[in-house]
Design a protein around this nucleic acid. Structure first.
Lengths: 178, 178
DNA sequence: CCGCTACTATTCACTCAGTGAATAGCTGCC
DNA sequence: GGCAGCTATTCACTGAGTGAATAGTAGCGG
């Protein structure tokens, strides 16, 4: 994923060590899943191996021993490149919803597919209401709102797709079981 | 992912061996990424370990030796369960777009974030035109149309988000760099 | 001032997903 | 006979991610 790039971004503000990066990440991107420590050190290791970061200070002043990493020139370039380049469009459909509908038609029947589409629609609508509440909640930050809007837009896209696909189940079944 | 469940679904039609499963998958779900052989056998191994499939025939009739797998009772249950259960909503935002905007604000400035949002918007619109063409292409199957509609809906959701987020960059920056 | 708890910092062992190449036997065919 | 190509499986490897273990230090109450 983009964990490596996010770490490069956090290191752009100056040298940091692993523990610190984990906390900075979770604090700056509370809408994203918290990073596990293991993940941070593993990623840092790969970044060092690839020449994007280098250990800048191995201290033992008082507290436990720790190694701070700095961006290399190459790492700074890599970060700048990532920030300017667009995300490549996915060449394939990776959606579990799509796969499940097709498998339902293969392994069961059209009704099973329709049942699933209806159930998923109900669940999505419930989630939509939750997220709308999040947006208007008293303590909501700008980040929370932006993240909620992202999720809302995609839930809404799913809902439309679930509806149109429901109408196409019969046609899809013919094709899939041909 | 759902690769394991898709394999269970393909096995619902009767015993198959790995090579066969790969081909059946790629044929039935041409909109999804083709499975690598290694992936198929690794997944089958886990399914067998977990008691969802079992080797049903180890043949050597003529051709090379091969092992067919069958669904166990437990595997059939697992498949039925997957087909009825809804996909759990993602508790976190996993979007690279979101992460990149925040990192742009952390490591660079508001203009970098805006440049990215504009560039990604242009790329998405181009992709949207491609997918619209796919839908109306002469050889398009129902599956192709359903898959294209899925992608189109989510690209459209992204586009709206890119627009609204563009207007919020300044606010988001204040919050992120606080 | 002893011992406990909590915090800082890193490492370890593990699973899962996925890639690409290697291996090996058989079939058809020129 | 030999070789191209298909069937079928395996292997070695990378990367993402999880959860627990380790170890040292600081603060704090009795």
């Amino acid at each position: 994923m983009s964990t490596a790039h996010v770490l490069l971004g956090l290191l752009a503000g100056g040298p940091r060590h692993g523990y610190d990066l984990k906390r900075a990440h979770d604090e700056r991107l509370p809408q994203a899943k918290p990073l596990a420590y293991g993940q941070v050190y593993a990623t840092l290791g790969r970044l060092e191996r690839d020449g994007f970061v280098e250990p800048s200070a191995h201290e033992q002043d008082g507290g436990p021993e720790r190694t701070a990493y700095t961006l290399t020139h190459s790492g700074r370039d890599r970060l700048a490149q990532w920030l300017t380049e667009i995300e490549p469009p996915a060449p394939y459909v990776t959606s579990t919803l799509f796969a499940k509908v097709v498998v339902a038609l293969l392994a069961a029947d059209a009704d099973r597919a329709r049942d699933y589409l209806a159930a998923q629609r109900a669940a999505h609508m419930a989630r939509l209401r939750e997220l709308t509440a999040v947006k208007s909640a008293p303590g909501a930050t700008v980040g929370d709102v932006v993240a909620a809007d992202y999720a809302i837009g995609h839930l809404d896209a799913d809902l439309r797709w679930l509806q149109t696909t429901l109408a196409r189940v019969a046609d899809l079944q013919k094709e899939v079981t041909a």
